[in-house]
Write a protein that binds this DNA or RNA. Sequence first.
DNA 1: TTCGTTTTCGAAAACGTTTTCGGTAGTTAT
DNA 2: ATAACTACCGAAAACGTTTTCGAAAACGAA
Lengths: 383, 383
Amino acid sequence: MIACTKCGSVENIVKSGFIRGKQRLFCKACEVHFTINLPQKEINKTARQITIVDIAKSLGISPSTVSRALNGRSDINPMTRQEIIRVATEMDYRPNLLAQSLNRGETHTIGVVIPNIERPFFAGVLAGIQKVATEAGYRVMICQSNESHSTETLNVQALVASRVDGLLISHSKETTSFDHIKLQLRRGLPIVHFDRVCNEVETAKVVQEDFEGSFVLTEHLILQGCKRIAVCAGPRELLISISRLNGYKAALAKYDIPLREELIYHTNFIKGESLLALDGWLNLPQKPDGILAVHYANAIDMIVELKKRKIKIPSEIAIVGFGDELIASLIEPSLTVFHHSPFQMGAIAAKMLVDNIIHKDTFQPMLQKMNGELIIRQSSLRK
Amino acid sequence: MIACTKCGSVENIVKSGFIRGKQRLFCKACEVHFTINLPQKEINKTARQITIVDIAKSLGISPSTVSRALNGRSDINPMTRQEIIRVATEMDYRPNLLAQSLNRGETHTIGVVIPNIERPFFAGVLAGIQKVATEAGYRVMICQSNESHSTETLNVQALVASRVDGLLISHSKETTSFDHIKLQLRRGLPIVHFDRVCNEVETAKVVQEDFEGSFVLTEHLILQGCKRIAVCAGPRELLISISRLNGYKAALAKYDIPLREELIYHTNFIKGESLLALDGWLNLPQKPDGILAVHYANAIDMIVELKKRKIKIPSEIAIVGFGDELIASLIEPSLTVFHHSPFQMGAIAAKMLVDNIIHKDTFQPMLQKMNGELIIRQSSLRK
DNA sequence: TTCGTTTTCGAAAACGTTTTCGGTAGTTAT
DNA sequence: ATAACTACCGAAAACGTTTTCGAAAACGAA
């Protein structure tokens, strides 16, 4: 009944077990094992994307020629090229970027790791990154660490697994060990740090004037007559927090104002924290007469609270913050800030990364510090 | 001097032109063309990623077996599997997602197209998308249309070229033709619309209570005693603008308040526009006593301007807006809004898309309307 | 011991490109 | 006429996986 698929013999067929659920047969004549294949189900070819092979077949030429034509290579007759391009556009051919990337060993994709996309600062940075990347022909893959070190590590691994051509990263507040970065760097992956950078590692970096900004803000408070300036600092380990705190300290030192530990409070990007700080300060025997918030959001929260408590700003307490958002200018009193453009930071970082990717061998990592700007508003302006 | 690469003969070699800049030679004996290849430069194998073939070689087995072991297939000896996994982790093997995707025909990546990442609403949506997508094992690729139809079309093409498994999209304000969507839909790409949806096309959609929200806000103004309610509407063609305008009209109709064309102003998401609207209204013989802003940002701008002009809110003019952000609660007077959670919208949309991708055949597109919430604040509350 | 069976694994094709190498034919200079 | 040359194109390998098919060996029962 059943014929051998090879020799066609019928009488020499014996059963020979099961394989993958199907009866297996053996032909003693030609010594071959086989199974009977059902007529394979209809393959849906309609929705498939056109490939270079389809074009080649339809023109009766080889795929290599099509590839050459489409990529503007030289070894091809202009007439042939023209015809191939005509057919390609007619068939609406779109190259499969996966296959291209696999073959060329580059994806034209850059990975971005940020703590949180909902923070306006990072959203602005992303916009800047996207603009530059798109213009340079790169796609962007974004991951959020949610301020978690382990998530950040997973993010980096996922992006590397996707074979991104380079990495832009701003570390989570938890991140104090940088092995995940060092590993990829050793493997030759171009990496650029921005904002929350890491000094243990030799990458290009874009940073704000953290020290200078704090210094200027603090000095401004001092010049407005503040004698006891409290500071709402950031997470203890975070580099930018440390720089900002140092700027504050340096300004105090310049004007011979003693540094008081009780006026320093470290927050952790947790909602409502700054109010604890404020509460503490207001219960001191000697209240502060100025506050520097290392993150503008804390300043906003404190302004709201101070107003609730009927404490006058800036006459009783002046307040200034780091970073600018629309809200800083709209709140009453409006908030004095030290401001950098997040969009520009993203743009610069992306530009550096693209440079690094393109000139992998000659690229020299550098540190670029952005120029910030003191914007004086009502919250600190004592006439 | 020069020997044929095939037969080794030396005397039969003649020159035969140049090819790709190199001298070409011909052996008359074996009739073969060839060039002399310089010893190829040292290939840098050190930084290369470990592949499945490396593992196979190091164990003296075939790549297919390694693949089987790593993917938990059944056809393999437990001992072998264990050993392979041991070596794989030891060598820190990471599968090349490009190769995997190319082979399996799926990338486990979803594409997102939004008008602008800097708008807090969309940033929130993105956060929601990311969370759900990550949990479901999908990566996310984000593009911004910048409210341009042509950019949106390019974005879609780019994402399709990257072979995303599905698409989440909120249309640009310019988008009135949806051919780019229809095309991909025909090709079988799962697509989910959110917020700025498109009715011409049968996709799953997640929308806000645009009509209902406007209705509730307008009704609220009416119940607070407003008789002449102006509306700062959105772009004329945008579906959500139309719905919101309709909600406004319906509320007026319910309370037999005549609709006045001069109190309707269409904005276009351009900075400062709402002030033009406001200026026009304030110069009318009969000023409005209530304003509905279809986008909260316009309401904020108008509050600032009204305060400048010393017009009392809400007693002279009450004002309400669509959408909530921190600033709405902090501005003085705080703004009454109708609010939806952007994060939740993103999460729902992503969940729908993942469902659509996984159950491609059985998935039934549906429209999900999110529940909004009227938050009454000072800007409309006449005691 | 011989046939049917199961377990385990390898060879090879496939995914869609690009690139390398060389063959063929036609052209120019001797 | 022929040596040296140019222009164009195809075959095949390569990128790193997964999957399909069947071979080999070991096992069990008649």
